[in-house]
Amino acid sequence: MTTTRAPATSRRTTRDPAEVPAGLPRWAYVPAAAGGLFVLLPLVALGTRVDWAGYWSLVTSESSRAALALSLQTATTSTLLCLILGVPMALVLARGRFPGRDLLRSLVLVPLVLPPVVGGIALLSAFGRRGLLGESMEVLGLQVAFSTTAVVLAQSFVALPFLVVSLEGALRTAGERYDVVAASLGASPTTVLRRVTLPLVWPGLVSGTVLAFARALGEFGATITFAGSLQGVTRTLPLEVYLQRETDPDAAVALSLLLVAVAVAVIGLTHRRGASR
């Protein structure tokens, strides 16, 4: 990921790449390397614990396949929901002019700092059978309790702020100069958004989407509190890992590695696509 990015940066700057970067003291490499090790070592250690001989049968068992399929399906749906709601939210927060905007921004970010279990309890209070909207939803025939919809709601709730933060930051950094020019040339606000603003913040949008997907894929606390755990319906991969840990630690390790592989694949793919744009 860093290797594909580095050439793009050096092309834009005039500094000789062989020179010591002005803002990078040498000592910074030591804690940076320690930090890198800290992140990588547990992942490598996880790999050493895997029972490779039985790996394939462990990750292709019926319950594992059901959990993986459910995780991919719900994380994708949640990410789409986050895009539909999050892009306009980021636009409103970055470009809108109305009183209380800063307060609103802080409130929208709350799920980011909230323990997921608390998020799950909050979702129950809103959408549960005895929740704020529960009764009116039951009248309409909508039941989210113990359904895959509940999983998507839980994942979207925790993932949305990631998309909004990334995109809002990109929008603020990009500024409104180009938007103003395009508008002065007669472009409607929607055209400006589509042809100028979004292409300008594309990397921010891509990384926000990846973060939201990754967060949705890893969601555990809110799901187990709000949606429950049933194979093929609500038991996503993280829940399956946690449950397998009770009886079959080998399977739990194998599934953990699968989850790591899926996460790395998603980040790798999107980054390459984002960089080539």
Partner: peptide, 20 residues
């Protein structure tokens, strides 16, 4: 025909307490 097979007995109890 359970709608959920929870991780722990406290998770089961919580789902009943909140009326889910």
């Amino acid at each position: 025909h359970p709608v959920s097979e929870e991780q722990s007995v406290t998770d089961v109890l919580h789902k009943v307490v909140v009326g889910e």
